[in-house]
Design a protein around this nucleic acid. Structure first.
Lengths: 223, 223
DNA sequence: GGCCGTTTGTGACAAGGTCACCGACGCTGC
DNA sequence: GCAGCGTCGGTGACCTTGTCACAAACGGCC
């Protein structure tokens, strides 16, 4: 971590690189970098939740989990993005069933509360950064909501496959279902149907897309 | 409006009343109060969207609308709350299908962009206000999402009826369906079933709750 | 009363979620 | 090789929810 802190990581983080010099200096001196190993919970019980987290490298997946085990992915937090959920979580004390899970080994900057407040007071560029982060998250949430509540599962699955692949997707049906907030059986059936239509070829843990054009047409159909 | 502006409305708005004197003075002098009549769109096309809106009196309903006409209510904005969606909308330019509709005659304070930025720079209490507003909205969104994606319609409807009523709810089945993001027929069927179980009595535009205790039990059942 | 728009009821069907259970695959250790 | 085991995928039955088409009931208003 020390070796990481010594190089100017701030310049390499999209968003943070646009901060003014003073803010960057403050962050560089006052902000510990924390690491979360792949699969680890980024802000589950126990983590000190009193800081404003900005992802430096890696990707964090934020998802809802129901009591019966069903899941849905709300959004992902990547380099230069901030998990505003953490902050909201602190401020409102509402314990919703959301989890943040590291999809790779993640390095994040953890701005302590006082540093966060000091930066907000002193730096216009930092304020813009924070507000933009919130705006993006809210937009993500609403898009996810719209998709989950209004759209058919076949379109959503088609879009997910397209978004995830060059030619093939490496994922279990269970993982795809959790992404969409659906059930494994539903995804399995839908994929079988795609296979019958000649859109994909299925094998264990892997979906090969053989007719991308038609899959795109399916994904784009109005509804 | 002038007569409204002359009295110290700020003191009466929850949240804003905790701002420091300087911030209150700035808001009082620089912020026009705008009115939206009942049923009007609070930030649809045409409204100057470049300001930060805080509701003074009345209630604004924010909802998603699908192409096929289905709707779902995301959250409501009441006195002292801010529709951060507006701000997000500005910043990200993502045109999602969200609408804000006045449920009563609404009066809102429209902080112009420069005033908003000036207050953020000068007032710690204002910053807290804005961040808290965001946090609340995000929490609302996530709770709504959890409910819509994971929970059964009978529980959700029961809870909605309970939340809306002392003894009776005045609403059409269509309105209840739009609140929940479901379809009118589904709500009608469900209400009929409630009636058969002796929980409610139905009449046109009105649902009378006759066995509140059992309705509560239904709403609280795990699932 | 008759007309008209709104609200509610209903049956048939499609889509999606749940449950139970099985079989197929891939790995590990022998 | 192969036996055992855990994960992954397939399937049928059934239930809930959403969609469609239409009809009946209600409440105002001439």
């Amino acid at each position: 971590m020390n070796s990481l802190a010594r190089i100017d990581w701030i310049a390499k983080v999209p968003g943070l690189d646009r901060l003014d010099g003073e803010a960057r200096a403050l962050i560089a001196t006052r902000t510990p970098l924390v690491q979360v190993p792949k699969g680890g919970h980024a802000f589950a019980a126990g983590t000190e939740c009193s800081s404003y987290l900005v992802v430096v490298t890696g990707c964090v997946r934020v998802q809802l989990i129901a009591e019966n085990g069903r899941e849905i992915v709300l959004y992902r937090v990547r380099s230069g993005e901030s998990c505003v959920l953490t902050t909201s979580c602190l401020m409102t004390r509402a314990p919703y069933g959301a989890e943040a899970i590291a999809e790779d080994d993640v390095v994040a900057a953890a701005l302590p509360g006082e540093t966060f407040r000091a930066l907000l007071a002193s730096s216009a560029t930092f304020r813009d950064f924070v507000l933009a982060a919130y705006a993006d998250r809210v937009a993500d949430l609403i898009l996810t909501m719209e998709d989950a509540v209004f759209h058919r599962i076949d379109r959503r699955l088609a879009r997910l496959l397209l978004a995830r692949s060059m030619a093939a997707v490496t994922a279990t049906h269970q993982e795809l279902a959790a992404e969409l907030g659906s059930a494994r059986e539903v995804v399995s059936r839908q994929l079988k149907s795609f296979e019958k239509q000649g859109l994909v070829v299925l094998s264990r843990g892997r979906i090969d897309i053989v007719d991308r054009a038609r899959l795109v047409r399916l994904a784009d159909e109005a509804d």
